[in-house]
Design a protein around this nucleic acid. Sequence first.
DNA 1: TTGAAAGCGCTAACAA
DNA 2: TTGTTAGCGCTTTCAA
Lengths: 331, 331
Amino acid sequence: MSTTTVSNVIHGKTGEVSPETEQRVRSYLEEVGYIPNINARNLAANHSNIIGVVIKTRENHYMHILSEPFVSEILGGIEEMIRKAGYYMMLYISDDMADILNKVAAWNTDGLLLFWMLDDDALRVYKRFRKPVVCVDTYISEETRAQFENSFVNIGLEDEAGTHEAISYLIKTGHRRIGFLSDNHEGVDLVRFRGYRRALEEAGIKYSNKDFFELCSTKGEIESSMKKLAEKAKKYEAVFCCSDVYASMLINSCERIGISVPEDLSVIGFDDTFPSRLSRPSITTIHQDIVERGRLSIELLLKMIIGEKPESDQIIMKPKLVIRESVKERK
Amino acid sequence: MSTTTVSNVIHGKTGEVSPETEQRVRSYLEEVGYIPNINARNLAANHSNIIGVVIKTRENHYMHILSEPFVSEILGGIEEMIRKAGYYMMLYISDDMADILNKVAAWNTDGLLLFWMLDDDALRVYKRFRKPVVCVDTYISEETRAQFENSFVNIGLEDEAGTHEAISYLIKTGHRRIGFLSDNHEGVDLVRFRGYRRALEEAGIKYSNKDFFELCSTKGEIESSMKKLAEKAKKYEAVFCCSDVYASMLINSCERIGISVPEDLSVIGFDDTFPSRLSRPSITTIHQDIVERGRLSIELLLKMIIGEKPESDQIIMKPKLVIRESVKERK
DNA sequence: TTGAAAGCGCTAACAA
DNA sequence: TTGTTAGCGCTTTCAA
C-alpha cells in the first residue's frame, strides 16, 4: 500500500488500482479518519482550489461594502456556485492596489474575480497573476483586453442603455425636470450618466450641472447630504438614483419635508435589489439579474480554470425597466 | 546568504543577522519582487493565518444568508478586523454538519468563528478541530462549555431581556393583544419567545398559541405567508417581529390591506439593522451593536490564537430599546 | 553570525 | 497494478 496507490484511490483514479486494494485503502482511510492537508496538497499540486474574489472599495463609505445590497446579492450567487463546484472562496477587500497585488500573488489562487476594477488595474493584476481572471463591471478597452491572452472575461451590464430606458420612461410619463443622483462620477455611474444625458438630449431637454445630485456618501455626512438633495428636489419632477438604496433614502428624506412620492416627485432606482421592494412606495427601477450574473461569472471562471478558452472576452447583460409605484404619470 | 538568513530577515529576527547582511538580503528581495508562497509557509509552519467563519444555514430560505442584514453587518465587522490583523477570512457556508466538519479539519485554520450552531454541534466541531473557537449566538450549557478546554468563548446577546423590554414597552404604551412573529422556534428565537411570554405573564396577559405569528420563510411562500399574517394582525394591537426585515415586510403587507402602522397596529423589530431606518414609518426596535460584536468576537479569537486564555468563556452583550415611529401610544 | 539539511504532507513521474 | 522517489517553497534545528 504505497503513497501512490493511496493517492490514486483518494483521487478516484481507480482504473489504476485493483478493486481489492481499493477496498483495503478505503477502509484504512476510514479507520484512521484520514483528512487531507490542504496546504500540502496545494503546495505539491501547485493549485489551491481557491477562487479569490477581490473587491476594491472606497475608504470611509457610509456602510461596509458587504452590506450593500448589490454586493451581498451577487456574492450570494458567487458563493453558492463556488461551493457547489467544490472550490473555496477567499475574499480580498481592500482599497489599496499594492495590497491586492501582493495577496493575489502570495495565494496563487486558481482564478480571480475582480470587482469594479479600473481598466489598467485589472491588467496589472493579470500581469502578476497570469491565471484566469473574470471582471465584473469593469469598463475596459479592447486594446487592454487583448493583453489578457485569452484568460479573461469581462461580464458587464448595459448601463448606458438601461439608464437611457429609465430616463426615456420618465420623459414619456410627462417629466422634464429630471435630476441624476450618484455619489461618484466614474466607472459604472459615469456610463449611466451618459445614458441619462443622451435621453435628455434626444427629448430636447437642456441639461445643467445643477441637475447632477451629488451625494456625499461618507460615514457622518450621508444623512445631511441626502437632506440637502431632498430640498433641492423640490424644484424637480423626477430624480434618477444610481441605486435602490439611494432611491429609498431619498424618498424618506423627501417625505420628511413634505414632498410626497410619487405625487410631488417621481423617483427611479437601479439594480432591483431587495430595498426596492421593501420601500413604500415600492420603487420603479432598472432590473438586472444580479444573482445570475454572479453565478455566470463563476461558471466562466471555472471553465477557464479547467483550460477552456472563453467564447468571447466580453459578456454584456441586458437590464430592463420594472414599473412599480414610485413614478407617477404627469399630464 | 543562506535560506536561514533570508528567512530570518523576512521574519524580522534581525538580532541574528548582521546589519550589512540584512541590507543585502532586503535589496535582493526587493529586486526579485519576492512574494512568499503561502501554502509552503503554512505547511512548514503548521498554521494558516486563516480564520474560518462557519455559517450554518437553513435550506431554501427566501434569501441567501449573505443578504440578511444582520449577517452582512456582522460580517463587515469581522472581515475588517481579520484583515487588519493580517489574517485571511475563509467562509464556510453549509447546512450540513458533516460537510462543515470535513472542511474545518482539512483546512486546519488558526481559529474558527461559529454562527448559530447548536450546543453539541459546536462541541463536535471543537473535538475535531482542537484549536480556538468562538461562537456567536449559540446557547450552550455550562457542562458543554466545560469541555472546550479554555479554547472557547461564546459571545451572545441578552435576547430574553431584550424581548422582555420590547414587550413591556408595548404593554406600557397601552397594547394588550400582542403577537410574536418568527420563522422558527429554536435557538435565539426561542429565547426571545420566552422573554415575550414572561413580559405577558408579568402583566397578567393571557397567551394563546394563536398569538404566535409563524412565518413561512421559504422562497416561494414568504409573500403569501406574510399576507396571511397581515390579515391575522387585524385582530391585534401590536406585533413583535424577530427581525427588522420581517417588521418592514409586515408593515408593507399591512398597509396594502388598509391597516395603517402605527395608527391601527404597532410593530416592533429586533437588531436595529439598516432596514429599520430605511422603513417608513421607521421601526422601533431592539438595538444591538452588531458591528462591534463582530469585531469583539475576532478580537477574542485572535487573543486565543496567540495563546492567551480568555477571561471568561461567555460574553453576553446588552441590547436596548430604540424608539422610532412604528409604535403608537394607545389610551 | 551564517550555512546545511531535514522535513512539513502531498502529487506525479517513473521504475519495477 | 504497485512501489519508489523527487520535489513543491518554506521553517527550523543544529552545526560550523
